[in-house]
């Protein structure tokens, strides 16, 4: 790029940086808008009237032809679906509280099981440590479909099928939070722990007073990530829960047919709220935890 007459090199350089930054902002903004489109569609669709929604989605039905033409702004906004969902649909709340219960139990269980396990992997040397950790990593990488049958047989043998424990217990002992927390605990300097030991601190003291506070970010990031995963569980409840009254909220939306697409969008918006709140709660920890997990110990 040739500099304009009358401008010195520093000004040109400054202008060039601004232009680069502006282009980057534009590209990123375009990508952000693109990624937010489904959410926007969800929000607008949730207040679109039934007839309008049916008219737009008619091409998707066997009776229609052509392509769906989505209009963002509804002609007659209708908020009655929110009222209907929140004040006249107890089924939704049954599943909502099922999801809360399942997610809460899973997260609590993971904190109890995964934090000590990760501390042990990070801070102690024991026989077959590397092999055991390799097994953990392999289990983390295995998709659910691979272990579904074995899980089903074990749960059936223990009599947990068709109970919430069928979903909770396998998730409690998931290896993914162990892997995340392992990296967080590795960031604690060994010299610090040695100094505490020299001052007379026991192993429990080290864990409670030094390990947990210093790995707080990683723990909360694991909680947030696992919350999002547990809130959206579909395969496990579908495989292990036959009784509909035990289902989580993630299975409610597929039960709504195309003729009630507007209602489904409304339910989706409400379902999205807890995830947004938890994400807002743990955003900082999530960033810290991920960065810690990416740091080589």
């Amino acid at each position: 790029m040739q500099a304009a007459p009358g401008m010195d090199g520093e000004a040109v350089e400054k202008m060039r940086r601004r232009m680069k930054r502006g282009m980057a902002v534009v590209v990123l903004a375009a990508l952000a808008v693109l990624l937010c489109l489904p959410v926007a569609m969800l929000l607008f669709g949730s207040v679109t009237g039934d007839y309008e929604m049916w008219e737009r989605l008619l091409p998707m039905t066997p009776a229609g032809n052509g392509y769906v033409r989505w209009r963002w702004i509804p002609e007659f906004p209708d908020f009655s679906r929110y009222a209907n969902l929140l004040f006249a649909t107890p089924q939704f709340f049954v599943l909502f509280w099922n999801s809360v219960k399942i997610t809460g139990l899973i997260l609590a269980g993971q904190l109890l099981a995964a934090v000590p396990a990760a501390w042990a992997f990070a801070r102690y040397d024991f026989w077959m440590k590397k092999a055991l950790f390799a097994v953990y990593v392999i289990l983390m990488l295995l998709p659910f479909q691979v272990t579904m049958l074995s899980q089903y047989l074990v749960l059936d043998r223990f009599g947990f099928l068709d109970t919430h424990w069928a979903v909770v217990l396998p998730a409690v002992f998931s290896t993914f939070p162990v892997f995340l927390l392992y990296r967080s605990f590795l960031t604690i300097p060994e010299s610090l722990l040695e100094a505490a030991r020299m001052d007379g601190a026991g192993e429990g003291y080290l864990f409670w007073r030094i390990g947990l506070p210093l790995a707080e970010g990683g723990i909360w990031s694991a909680v947030v990530l696992n919350f999002l995963e547990c809130w959206n569980l579909i395969e496990q409840p579908l495989a292990f829960l036959k009784e509909q009254s035990l289902w989580p909220l993630s299975l409610y939306l597929p039960q709504i047919g195309l003729e009630r697409a507007g209602f489904a969008m409304t339910a989706s918006v409400v379902t999205l709220v807890p995830a947004l709140l938890v994400f807002g709660f743990g955003k900082e920890y999530l960033e810290q935890g991920i960065s810690a997990a990416g740091t080589k110990g």
Binding site: L86, F87, A88, T89, P90, F92, F93, F96, W97, V100, V273, P274, L277
Partner: peptide, 16 residues
């Protein structure tokens, strides 16, 4: 939010 959902649960059951 949870309290709100709890209240809505009660109301929806009664309406239903």
């Amino acid at each position: 939010f949870l309290v709100f959902m709890m209240v809505c649960t009660m109301i929806s059951k009664s309406v239903y």
